[in-house]
Every structure is written in C-alpha cells, then in structure tokens.
C-alpha cells in the first residue's frame, strides 16, 4: 500500500532491524528505514519515540546493538561521525553547528579547508580566495542569498544561518543529509527559505531525512513519512496518500490503521 516505488530500485541507504537499548530501556526495537535518492523522508513521532536515536546511529554518533546499515545495497559499518561523513552521510544539527564569530567561507570549510602551498610542499596556507569563490558558487547554486560573505555568521538572520549550516553539510559530496528540526527556531519567511532549500537539494539528487515536530512543514516538503512510537516503527505513508489526521492518529495511538485492516 505504501510502496508505490519501483520495487527493483535499490535504496541509497537502508537501515534494517535496528535495535538499541540504554540500560534496560529499549530506545529502538527492530526498526527499518529506507531512503531513496531524490527523496525527502520525514521521521515523525513524539518525544522519546526514538527518532534521535535512529538518526544518531545513522550519523555515527551512536552504535546500534543489532541491525545493519546498507549503502547502495552494500553493507557498511558506521562507527564514528567520521565514518558517516566519509560515506556521504551528513547531519545538520538543530542547534546550528556554526561558529558565530567566523565568516561564512570559514564556517563552510571548517575542518576541510582548501590549502595553497607556499615554500613548495613544506608549508601550506589557507586559500581564502578559492574558498570565498567556491562559497559564492555553492550559495548561488542553492539560491541562498546572504549579501556579504566576509561578515561573522553572528550578523546573519536565523534562516540564513540555517541555510549556511545546510550548505555546509552538502558541500562535501553528501549523498544523504539528516536534518534535525531545521525550522524549529525560525519565523514564517525564514522557514519558507529553508523549505525551498530542502526541495532544491532533493532536486539535485540528494536523499534527505527530515525530522520535525511541525507537521505543516513536513506535509509541504516530505515525499514519505515514517512514524515511530516508543522505539518501534508504527508505519509509513506517502505524503500524497495520507493526511494530517491519519498521521497524528498514528503518532498518538501507535496503531497503523492500514496494517490493522490488512
């Protein structure tokens, strides 16, 4: 019912039978999640449903007790955030992992600066010009408008900061981007910008896992929704074949009506 996709298509990322317990508490029990290219999958559920645990496992910040992760159908092991990044899995955190006191290019390239050799191979320094140029290109491609790049991120608006955080995550050959409440702190107009950017990224071939409490945003941007409750996957729906009431019912009752009926 929920799978209208070509069944032969291989998901970009597939998590199978993921379980994780903290002490005696099962945070996740046998959860599956598949994400395809050009797709925005929303992860929904009340607080404590297991969304954070699931994405932390995918991002390498936590390890699963059982279960496996496949990238393009091949089993991979993600033991650290570094591993996840190397596989093209990037995360945009809710609280903005930007340095307010630094400018946009510095933030964008933080940890992965472009260097320019001086004194031959002995000594390299930052290639500021090239980083600024690349930043302008990237922001242009993603239709992000900031004005000046050389001012500290502190002086940007919330939407602009979130856009920069997202741009930073996709710049380095990301295949899948996890977004944790990207619009939580934003006003209407800024939310609009960020949702536009999410669509832009999907258009460019990325897979996106989108976590949000704001159902209105989810319905506008997600292709598919996955509902969790108490560490279990309740069910999933294509956005076009469901409605707000059904999703809310699933989130609250933890019962998938379709599955019950079947």
């Amino acid at each position: 019912m929920t799978q209208s996709r070509d069944p032969s298509a291989v998901p970009l990322v597939e998590m199978r039978g993921i379980s994780r317990a903290f002490g005696g508490v099962a945070a996740l029990q046998n959860v599956d999640l598949a994400v395809y290219r050009n797709e925005v999958v929303a992860l929904l559920g009340d607080n404590g449903a297991g969304k954070s645990t699931l994405i932390k496992i995918l991002a390498g910040a936590l390890s699963a007790d059982t279960g496996e992760i496949l990238l393009d159908g091949k089993k991979v092991s993600i033991d650290s955030p570094r591993d996840a990044k190397d596989l093209g899995i990037e995360t945009v955190y809710q609280d903005l992992a930007l340095c307010d006191n630094l400018d946009v290019p510095t933030n964008l390239f933080l940890g992965r600066e472009l260097m320019r050799p001086i004194l031959g191979p002995l000594l390299s320094i930052f290639d500021r010009r090239r980083m600024a140029g690349e930043t302008r290109d990237l922001l242009g491609r993603l239709k992000i408008e900031l004005g000046s790049l050389q001012i500290p991120v502190r002086s940007l608006s919330g939407g602009q900061r979130q856009s920069v955080a997202i741009a930073k995550s996709v710049y380095f050959n990301a295949k899948l981007v996890i977004m944790d409440e990207p619009t939580a702190a934003l006003g209407v107009r800024q939310t609009e910008r960020v949702l536009g950017l999410v669509r832009e990224l999907r258009q460019s071939g990325l897979a996106i896992v989108y976590i949000s409490h704001i159902l209105e945003d989810v319905f506008r941007v997600a292709d598919r929704m996955v509902v969790l409750k108490n560490g279990r996957k309740i069910g999933e729906r294509l956005t076009e074949r469901t409605n707000r009431d059904e999703i809310v019912r699933m989130m609250i009752t933890g019962v998938d009506d379709a599955a019950e009926a079947a």
């Binding site: 955030p81 570094r82 990044k85 995360t91 955190y93 903005l96 992992a97 930007l98 340095c99 307010d100 006191n101 630094l102 510095t106 933080l110 940890g111 992965r112």
Partner: peptide, 15 residues
Amino acid sequence: YAIGGNEEGVRRTGV
C-alpha cells in the same frame, strides 16, 4: 577562533 566560537560545533565537523 573556531573552538572559541563553538567548540562542540567544531568537534562535530571532525576536527
């Protein structure tokens, strides 16, 4: 400068 601005953020970028 980056660590002084947002240490946790810098850690997350893998530095």
